[in-house]
């Protein structure tokens, strides 16, 4: 284990410093002036819905894409002018597995190791070590075509750790994984940092960022809309959210007004399902709310308390919800994590 990971690079406080990064595709600004600062030895999460610009940002930081404007430094080295040095300091696990489908797991790792300057024997040894570490030894010689999503992800991560890079980028490392595999991935990421690496990951799930990251940047439409620790972010949303199901739809509007008055927050109303969702900063206020609703003669069908979803973080920070499909995604993630 000890040999697998990199120690903290000394003498540089900031693993990533990005200033005003911009990337335009056609006339669409996918990344629109992103600032990021990641302290060495920490886990940093970039949180945002589909299409927010997470992947594009990562691709610029990892020298795969040239920024149209702005600049970024990795341990003090410029990603454009000193790209070859930057590549020696980073490991990249992209959103989609970047391994060779027609080769076996061990062949993939050996080739990457050889490219990183290892001799034949050393490369083989390193590949075996990593396969062992990621529980892939059994599948070492099988073609990747028969690998599950989780195995592919693990192999991809293994491939980015070959050179023990001090900084590791993980683009949505757990999207599409089942809860058990997701927990394993979280364990692995924590281990990386315990051994001194810095990790920058992206995610669509607040829970994941909360679970792993020291600091979080919330990104929307190519811009960082909030930045801070998980606690700071959640405090701005309420630690959990209250969900009310109203019995009669003609009461909806009045109910919403009462909720917003009593809890002093903005709420999210869905007329089709008859649900009102609101951030809950103080549990005590709920008593007041229930009394107020009773006095107004509004009948509830259901009442529940939920951990905040990305949807609520977004609503609070940006004043608009995330796109429908992502909202569904993030709330189903809540369910899975709770299991």
């Amino acid at each position: 284990m000890k040999r697998l990971y990199q120690t903290v690079p000394t003498g540089c406080d900031w693993a990533v410093e990005a200033q005003g990064l911009v990337k335009t595709f056609g006339d669409h600004r996918a990344v629109d002036g992103v600032h990021l600062k990641v302290r060495t030895g920490t886990i940093y999460a970039v949180l945002g819905p589909n299409g927010a610009g997470k992947t594009t940002t990562i691709r610029m930081l990892t020298t795969l894409l040239r920024p149209d404007d702005g600049s970024a430094r990795i341990f003090g080295y410029d990603v454009v002018k000193e790209s070859h040095i930057v590549r020696q300091l980073i490991g990249v696990t992209g959103q989609y597995a970047s391994v060779d489908e027609s080769l076996s797991a061990i062949e993939n790792l050996v080739i990457f190791s050889r490219l990183l300057g290892m001799g034949r024997k050393e490369a083989r040894q390193r590949a075996e070590e990593l396969l062992e570490e990621f529980s892939l030894t059994e599948a070492a010689n099988r073609p990747l075509k028969n690998f599950s999503g989780g195995m592919r992800r693990r192999l991809d991560l293994a491939a980015s750790l070959i050179a023990q890079p001090p900084l590791i980028f993980l683009d949505e490392p757990t999207t599409g994984l089942d809860p058990r595999t997701r927990n394993q991935m979280w364990e692995t990421i924590r281990k990386l940092v315990n051994h001194g690496s810095t990790v920058l990951l992206t995610t669509q799930y607040l829970q994941e960022a909360d679970e792993l990251a020291d600091r979080i940047a919330v990104i929307d439409r190519g811009k960082v809309v909030a930045e801070g620790t998980a606690d700071e972010l959640k405090a701005s949303v309420g630690n959990s959210s209250l969900q009310l199901k109203i019995q009669h739809s003609y009461d909806m509007e009045r109910a919403r007004q009462i909720v917003e008055q009593v809890l002093k927050v903005r709420s999210n109303t869905s007329t089709e399902t008859g649900r009102i969702t609101a951030p809950m900063t103080e549990a005590d206020r709920v008593t007041d709310l229930l009394i107020a609703l009773r006095e107004a003669g509004i009948h509830l069908a259901e009442l529940s308390v939920q951990k905040p979803t990305l949807d609520e973080v977004f609503l609070t920070i940006t004043g608009h919800g995330v796109k429908k499909d992502t909202a569904v995604d993030s709330s189903s993630a809540v369910e899975e994590v709770r299991v």
């Binding site: 990892t62 020298t63 795969l64 070859h84 040095i85 590549r87 020696q88 980073i90 990249v92 992209g94 989609y96 597995a97 970047s98 391994v99 060779d100 489908e101 990457f112 490219l115 990183l116 491939a159 980015s160």
Partner: peptide, 11 residues
Amino acid sequence: KGVFDRFKSLP
């Protein structure tokens, strides 16, 4: 194919 992204990110 995705693997070319890895080649590009290697030194």
